[in-house]
């Protein structure tokens, strides 16, 4: 069986290993990581993140969780059907979004980690979205 990396490489070659199922888009393949009730969507498999990208991702998560509290350990998700509980927040670092992802709002969209890493402007944009979300959450 092809693993996530193979799927990623094939997708880069323009070969779609997995077909989207329009009637059941819950089965779409994603590069996702669940951190408790926060889902992050990536543009490549979690294991293929460069060290700096991974560190940046962790710092972003740490900025979201309540001060002093811990986020649960990461869990890779390659299919929306693996999500048993509706995430409280989705942060997407990819332009490739599964059809049904919007039903899981709130959704924060960001540039990919590889871009974000070198762009202060994009980091600021993401941070203001996170801040907005946090303010909204605490108000609600």
């Amino acid at each position: 069986m092809f693993d996530t990396k193979s799927s990623f490489i094939l997708s880069k070659l323009g070969i779609q290993r997995f077909q989207s199922q329009i009637n059941n888009s819950n089965s779409e393949v994603i590069f996702g990581v669940l951190w408790g009730d926060i889902l992050t969507l990536l543009d490549k498999s979690f294991n293929e993140l460069e060290e700096n990208e991974l560190k940046l991702l962790i710092k972003i998560l740490k900025s979201i969780v309540e001060d002093g509290s811990e986020y649960p350990f990461s869990k890779e998700i390659n299919n929306l059907s693996e999500i048993k509980k509706k995430p409280k927040l989705i942060i997407s670092f990819t332009s490739l979004k599964p059809n049904l992802i919007k039903k899981y709002s709130p959704l924060i969209e960001s540039k990919p980690l590889s871009v974000l890493e070198n762009s202060l402007e994009d980091k600021k944009t993401l941070w203001s979205k996170i801040k907005e979300h946090k303010n909204g959450s605490s108000a609600g």
Partner: peptide, 25 residues
Amino acid sequence: FKRDAIRYNYYDGNPKEDALLMSKQ
């Protein structure tokens, strides 16, 4: 230090071993 993530097959060897990424803020 908190446990953040697993990096699969990060360490060379036979078999390769996963790494636990931890951080302290």
